[in-house]
Amino acid sequence: MRNNHFQGNLPETFINGCSLRTLDLNHNQIEGKTPRSLVKCQMLEVLNLGNNKLNDAFPFWLESLPELQILVLRANGFHGPIWDPCINFGFSKLHVIDLSHNNFSGKLPSEYFQN
C-alpha cells in the first residue's frame, strides 16, 4: 500500500490471530498515532510507516512482536526518548530500524545493538 494518497488515521482494527507478515504504508499521508492493536499481529515481520504524518512517541509496545525484523518510522513526527530504562528492550529479531528524520531525543544505549 506504499506510495499512494491514503490519509487520515490508521484504524484500530487489527484482530487477535492476525496473520499479517508485512505492513508497508510508506509514502502516504497517514496521521495520528500508531495503533496499539498492531500487537495482535504476532507474525508481523516488516512494519514500514515511513514518510507519513504520524505524531507519536516511540512505540515501545512493538517489542512484543516476536517476529519483527524491520521497523521503519522515518520522516514522521515521532518524538521523545527511544530508551526507557524501566522497559526491557525486546525486539529480539530486529535487523533493520530506521528512525531518521523525526524528533527523537535522549540517550541511544548500546543495549539496542547487542542482539
Results as ranks from 00 to 15, higher is better:
23 L>I: 11
24 D>V: 11
95 H>Q: 15
52 N>Q: 15
65 L>K: 10
10 L>R: 05
72 V>S: 01
8 G>C: 06
22 T>M: 14
57 A>C: 06
87 I>D: 12
76 N>C: 12
111 E>C: 15
95 H>E: 15
83 W>K: 08
13 T>Y: 07
72 V>Y: 01
45 E>G: 04
106 G>C: 13
91 F>M: 01
43 M>Y: 06
113 F>A: 07
33 K>D: 13
61 W>P: 12
26 N>D: 14
86 C>F: 14
88 N>P: 02
77 G>F: 05
55 N>H: 11
96 V>F: 02
4 N>T: 08
115 N>C: 07
43 M>K: 12
25 L>W: 00
29 Q>E: 11
97 I>G: 00
15 I>E: 11
81 P>K: 06
82 I>G: 00
85 P>V: 03
70 I>K: 01
95 H>M: 11
12 E>Y: 12
81 P>Q: 06
44 L>P: 00
22 T>Q: 12
2 R>A: 11
12 E>T: 10
9 N>L: 15
103 N>D: 08
76 N>F: 06
75 A>S: 13
43 M>L: 15
88 N>R: 08
58 F>M: 06
68 L>S: 02
28 N>Y: 07
112 Y>T: 01
69 Q>S: 05
106 G>I: 07
106 G>H: 07
94 L>Y: 00
52 N>K: 11
4 N>Q: 07
62 L>S: 01
49 L>Q: 02
105 S>G: 13
113 F>E: 02
27 H>C: 10
1 M>Y: 13
17 G>C: 10
14 F>D: 06
42 Q>L: 12
6 F>N: 13
4 N>S: 14
59 P>W: 01
35 P>R: 09
86 C>A: 10
32 G>V: 03
90 G>Y: 03
74 R>P: 00
7 Q>W: 10
30 I>L: 07
26 N>W: 09
109 P>S: 11
87 I>M: 14
42 Q>Y: 06
60 F>K: 11
79 H>N: 14
7 Q>I: 13
38 L>G: 04
55 N>Y: 04
27 H>V: 09
89 F>P: 04
16 N>G: 09
52 N>T: 04
57 A>G: 08
82 I>N: 01
113 F>H: 05
98 D>K: 02
63 E>R: 07
44 L>M: 11
112 Y>V: 04
71 L>R: 00
20 L>H: 13
14 F>Y: 05
102 N>V: 15
105 S>M: 15
28 N>F: 08
108 L>C: 15
56 D>H: 12
28 N>Q: 08
73 L>I: 00
15 I>M: 10
65 L>G: 02
112 Y>E: 03
75 A>R: 03
4 N>C: 09
105 S>N: 10
78 F>D: 05
108 L>E: 12
110 S>G: 11
56 D>W: 01
42 Q>I: 03
62 L>P: 01
64 S>E: 15
17 G>S: 11
81 P>R: 06
110 S>N: 14
23 L>T: 01
33 K>I: 09
2 R>K: 13
8 G>L: 13
40 K>R: 14
48 N>Y: 02
22 T>A: 13
54 L>C: 08
106 G>P: 14
69 Q>H: 05
33 K>Q: 06
3 N>P: 07
113 F>P: 02
30 I>M: 07
58 F>W: 03
37 S>Y: 03
32 G>W: 00
